[in-house]
Write a protein that binds this DNA or RNA. Structure first.
Lengths: 147, 147
DNA sequence: CAAAAATTGTTAGCATGCAAATGTTATGAA
DNA sequence: TTCATAACATTTGCATGCTAACAATTTTTG
């Protein structure tokens, strides 16, 4: 009669602290806090990813950048708007395709990239610090399978 | 002179696809999509966590529930508001402490818990499906260390 | 070629998630 | 007891992140 004591039965058979989604949210929270301590210019992790992808790939359309950085088209629009306000990217209409707005790094944005990548390394190191070197490698390998 | 070819040098020394924060964001995205396919009543992962914690712990104050479910006080307020609108929780002023609002499960909320826990199990299973059984165990162990 | 389908970008709405400022109430220390 | 401190809750502001609806443009297809 496990049903007879619902409270005990439930907490034994289901533990929120063992659920992938809950733990992923907590790990994300911790990473976001670490990120904020390392990156200047008031950049967010999302803005950071968009800038790095733009440097990797070169100028491209807004939607294309969204796909490169794994962001929804509604999300990437806001991100590009804010990066433009901060002076790190510019947008210009494409001659080839009148629908497209080409997004490019400004000089200020280009100048920031090296610093951002160095900070990114430190952020990942600190995020993974609770794990040993082999655990870190294993964790990243498994995490990549879940994307 | 690795500096001479900035584009190539950067992409070799820094890969966004190997950064913990970026991968955590992608894994979260995938989990959120899976969640939406399994949970009824229009519940979000956050609302889900709050309900389950409330069932585990019993009625408690809003801030306390936020700590149990790892949510900021501004976040838990919105979550409780929406759960109240949906009829799954009620709030009542505490006699002992006039600052507190006690949050409790309604009958509808209580009735939902079992179903939610079953769905939660399936969601974690599907989220971790790309991993083998031993990899799943290993991943959850490492992930827990990063929270 | 012309209609259907796809792509690009915008906007609105909803739900986290955090910081910071505010007001109320409770508690602990001088 | 009084005063400083802490805890509780609310509100505002900003930044994701998604859905859905829309208009403009391009591509595909019959």
């Amino acid at each position: 009669m496990t049903i007879a004591d619902p409270g005990a039965a439930e907490t034994e058979t289901y533990r929120l602290d063992a659920q992938a989604g809950y733990l992923l949210r907590l790990a994300n929270q911790r990473h976001a806090a670490i990120f904020q301590n390392h990156v200047a210019a008031g950049l967010t992790p999302t803005q950071f990813s968009a800038l790095v992808r733009l440097a990797e790939h070169g100028a491209c359309s807004q939607n294309q950048l969204g796909r490169l950085a794994a962001m929804d088209i509604a999300t990437i629009k806001g991100v590009v708007d804010r990066l433009r306000q901060k002076g790190f990217v510019t947008t210009a209409p494409s001659r080839d395709d009148k629908r497209r707005h080409l997004v490019s790094l400004t000089e200020a944005g280009q100048a920031l990239i090296g610093e951002l990548q160095a900070a990114g390394q430190r952020i990942t190191e600190e995020t993974l610090a609770p794990l040993s070197a082999s655990e870190q490698k294993s964790f990243l390998r498994l995490l990549k399978k879940l994307t």
